[in-house]
Simulated assay, not measured.
Amino acid sequence: MFDLVMFDLDGTLVDTATDIANTANDVLESIGYAPLPHAQLRNWIGHGSRELMVHAYSHASGASLDAVRRCAGGDSLMEVFSRFHAQRCGQHSRVFPQVRETLQILLDLGIGLAVLTNKETRFARLVLERHQLQDFFDPVIAGDTLTARKPDPLPVMHCLREHGVEPRRALLVGDSTIDIITGRNSGVRCWVVPYGYNGGVPIRDCAPDRLIDDLSSVARAAQGCDAGSTDSPIQHEETASWP
């Protein structure tokens, strides 16, 4: 069914929200601001740590998002983030159920596996290594690997070229609207899990190709035994618009 399966990392393979939120609050507290609720910070995960901190700093300081993005101190703030996250990364994260088993089944079937994340390379690899997942994936495409990141189609197209796979024989598995748009932009199917990070918006409302309960559905599909699944295929129209 598939020759290549590409996976998002945060919220799809590994629950990293606590570590990311703790890091964001470390940064805020280090510059004199009160910590923000984890639930609020969780809603800003998905576009990379810089964009997360743009939202967090904007909310804490009262400055507009545009003003924060133009701020000359952004690089210094991200250096602080990187220092704290090197300690936090992998500290409280956990692999979601059925992930390791599914990856092993797909690997045994000879299916190519890749990670597409907007997380920086340093931390993407650290999360994978700390959970012994790194050997499943080639390549790992992070937010700073190429000249563009999700939802731009470049990361997907890069993986397709690396594996010599046509879009119709590939699948992207994620947890957010970013992943869904990436799939549309690159011409590959996108299946999503309901337990990840999507800015507080139910992922079903974002018109994925398929909503799956967990990654075991990918393994069943690859094994040709997907009949009778309780997962929900989503019908979407050509005129669908994206948030």
Rank of each mutant, 00 (worst) to 15 (best):
C71A: 13
G74S: 09
V140D: 02
V95R: 04
H85C: 02
L65F: 04
S82N: 15
D135T: 15
G110I: 15
Y57M: 14
V99E: 04
V54Y: 10
S93N: 03
P97E: 13
A142G: 06
F136T: 05
A60I: 08
D108C: 06
T121P: 00
V99D: 01
L133P: 08
R130C: 02
G62N: 10
F137M: 06
H131S: 04
P97R: 11
H55K: 14
G90T: 04
Q87I: 05
M78T: 07
K119Y: 01
E129C: 08
A114E: 06
E129W: 06
L77D: 10
I105E: 14
T121M: 03
K119A: 10
L146C: 05
A67E: 15
L133K: 14
H55C: 09
L116A: 07
E120N: 11
V68H: 11
Q134A: 14
L128H: 08
T117K: 02
G74W: 00
Q132S: 13
F137W: 08
A63K: 14
E79Y: 01
D66S: 09
I105D: 13
A60T: 09
S76Y: 03
R94H: 13
Q134R: 13
L109I: 09
H85E: 01
R50W: 02
L77Y: 08
A124C: 05
A114M: 07
L52Y: 03
E79I: 01
L116W: 11
